[in-house]
Write a protein that binds this DNA or RNA. Structure first.
Length: 593
RNA sequence: CGGGGCGUGGCGCAGUGGUAGCGCACCUGCUUUGGGAGCAGGGGGUCGCCGGUUCGAUCCCGGCCGCCCCGACCA
């Protein structure tokens, strides 16, 4: 492909709405265009990279024995009502939905569990037809509350989604491990530094789930790792080993003998300072409105050490609720008689005739000689002992583990301490179990002639997002440094002068590389050398061949890799061989012999 | 959904109650040609949309739409 005949337009300046580096570079290199918030076009160049991503994913999926299918994006509401997801997704506002001319409602699918389960249940009747794994690579739609960062969080995006079907959990394990291995190969082929973390399975539901995260400072997710290398989790899911207890070995003092005023001081730090203690000794009491699986609302009080924060993703599961949110100050006032800052666990009033449910975070289970709010404006109780004063309360319901993991906390594996980094979620694999097959009656006869719901897994991988993540990890201050497998073209030939003999030499090199099977682009534009160098660095061709009059006089052209940007002078007849060797080695450094 | 910001040529921006300007990009010519050239000439904008105030609105006011950031939320 010659530049002079291609549709490639680079930008000198960054469009104002591009915030993160992958977005800026995709834009400047002329690979994508924004059509609306979170909706992007791929140019021919951008699409070449996306296509390579597609091919890699397809190859690795096929290699596992998974079979490609094509499921509709436009899906009838009834299917989504059947699985129970319609209301939830509409309420959350994430589902694009529309009506046909007769008033029938449809969803633009954000995932395809329903569609694939429907197809399977109509075709499969016996365990003998199992197992299998079906995947597709198709556009998905999600009306994200806040699309951002270019391809990293779009409302329309390309995703590979796979769904495995087994007769039992054991079969699911096999599929899950295969997908895990395939994902590792995919991200390794893309030259990505990635990490595996345990994740919350969120709205899709199910038991085990793992996220594949590309480590990048611009990532939207916080990841928790053990520095011993044996633990990783999304911060939403992360747990720690029990924290050191500052009160260990102390004799519990009696309750309330040193009650102290804390007038107008509502922050934990402020109170600790005022009371001459540390935040670890302050009990924070948070009142939540919880909604249970039966749709009933109730109130929960959760106690946590003052130096810790409650993880509101972990909380619902821990206390047996579906959703939680912090109670309004009005409700808070009704059950505690005070305002935030002075709430404590003792003497909490029933709410609408139902006693409040009290939970204690593990960090406080053995706590002694603590301070807590007195449920009176400006007063704290002293000498609080959790086992003595709190665990005995009639509305105490249990000890839970709901603290947010922090940098430096001990790893739950017992080895190492936790570190927090940021990452971009590029893949997510779930063990769904029978959630959808039960809801949608997708059953087969097992060997004992009993009808059983199929055991499912689902495996998502964001393709555009992975391409963007690859740029986040592979760039410098002048442009993209494509990993060879994702580069729009592996190699570029640039001609510096349009003199006949120079052009002729460049043409010959370009044709020679093409004939040798190298994916080569040819910058044959009538531009000054400086312009070309800048553009080629920006677009990020892994290997560059520069043909100029001065070099030709000495019988050489210049070859370099984008990553090193160190040129070597090479005789033209050796270029094809060296370029091929360099590309085969990943184009990190130039192979010159 | 709460808070903040922004909509002016392809991109980045300035500006004014009296018919709109700069830089980059683009076109033509000449000179140039190894890291975003110089000079000269030129084309391109219903100033997001609707309404109001005004003799007159891109500017002031109201509404709407769109976009970006922070937060909440979120496979």
């Amino acid at each position: 492909m010659r530049w002079s005949q291609s549709f490639l337009v680079t930008l000198r300046e960054v469009p104002g709405d591009a915030e993160v580096v992958s977005h800026q570079l995709l834009y400047r290199a002329g690979l994508i265009h924004k059509l609306a918030a979170g909706i992007y076009s791929f140019t021919p160049f951008g699409f070449r990279s996306l296509r390579k991503m597609i091919d890699i994913v397809r190859e690795e999926m096929d290699a596992t024995g998974a079979m490609e299918v094509d499921l509709p994006i436009l899906q009838p509401k009834e299917l989504w009502v059947e699985s129970g997801r319609w209301q939830r997704y509409v309420d959350d506002g994430i589902l694009f939905h529309l009506e046909d001319r007769k008033g029938g409602e449809f969803a633009l699918a954000p995932t395809a569990e329903e569609a694939v389960t429907d197809m399977v249940r109509r075709s499969v009747t016996s365990w003998r037809q199992l197992p299998f794994n079906l995947y597709q690579i198709r556009t998905k739609f999600r009306d994200e509350i806040r699309p951002r960062f270019g391809l990293l969080r779009g409302r329309e995006f390309l995703m590979k989604d796979a769904y495995s079907f087994d007769v039992d959990e054991k079969g699911l394990d096999v599929h899950y491990r295969k997908m895990d291995a395939a994902y590792r190969r995919i991200f390794e082929r893309c030259n990505l530094e990635y990490a595996l973390v345990e994740a919350d399975s969120g709205a899709i539901g199910g038991s085990a789930s793992q996220e594949f995260m590309v480590v990048a400072d611009t990532g939207e997710d916080a990841l928790v790792f053990s520095d011993a290398g044996d633990y990783g989790a999304n911060v939403e899911k992360a747990v720690t080993a029990p924290l050191p207890e500052p009160w260990a070995g102390e004799e519990p003092r009696s309750f309330g003998e040193a009650n102290a005023p804390t007038p107008g001081i509502t922050t934990t730090e402020g109170q600790a300072k005022h009371l001459g203690t540390t935040p670890e000794r302050i009990v924070n009491t948070m009142i939540y409105e919880a909604v249970g699986a039966d749709g009933k609302a109730w109130l929960a009080a959760v106690l946590i050490r003052g130096d810790l924060a409650i993880n509101e993703v972990k909380l619902p599961k821990a206390i047996g609720a579906l959703h939680v949110k912090l109670a309004s100050e009005e409700i808070l006032g009704k059950v505690t008689g005070t305002r935030p800052g002075f709430v404590g666990p003792l003497g909490l009033l029933p709410f609408e005739e139902n006693p409040i449910s009290l939970f204690v975070d593990r960090s406080l289970e053995h706590g002694a000689n603590l301070w807590c709010g007195a449920n009176l404006e400006g007063l704290h109780h002293s000498g609080v002992s959790i086992p003595r004063d709190v665990l005995s309360l009639p509305y105490f319901k249990g000890v839970v583990e709901v603290a947010t993991a922090r940098e430096g906390d001990p790893s739950p594996t017992g080895k190492g301490t936790l570190r927090i980094r940021r990452g971009i979620e590029v893949g997510h694999i779930f063990k769904l179990g029978t959630k959808y097959s039960e809801a949608m009656k997708c059953e087969v006869a097992n060997q004992a002639q009993k009808m059983v719901p199929l055991t499912m897994g689902c495996y998502g991988l964001g393709l555009g997002r992975t391409v963007a993540a690859a740029i986040e990890q592979n760039h410098d201050d002048v442009g993209i440094i494509w990993p060879v497998p994702l580069a729009p073209f592996a190699c570029v030939v640039a001609v510096l002068q349009r003199d006949a003999h120079v052009l002729e030499a460049a043409d010959r090199l370009y044709e020679g590389l093409k004939a040798a099977g190298v994916e080569v682009f040819y910058d044959d534009r009538d531009e000054r050398p400086g312009v070309k160098f800048k553009d080629l660095d920006l677009v990020g061709f892994p290997v560059r061949v520069v043909v100029g009059g001065k070099g030709l006089q000495r019988g050489v052209v210049e070859v370099s890799t984008r990553r090193e940007r160190k040129a070597a002078e090479i005789a033209p007849d050796r270029v094809v061989e060296l370029v091929k060797k360099t590309l085969a080695a990943g184009a990190k450094t130039l192979v010159t012999d």
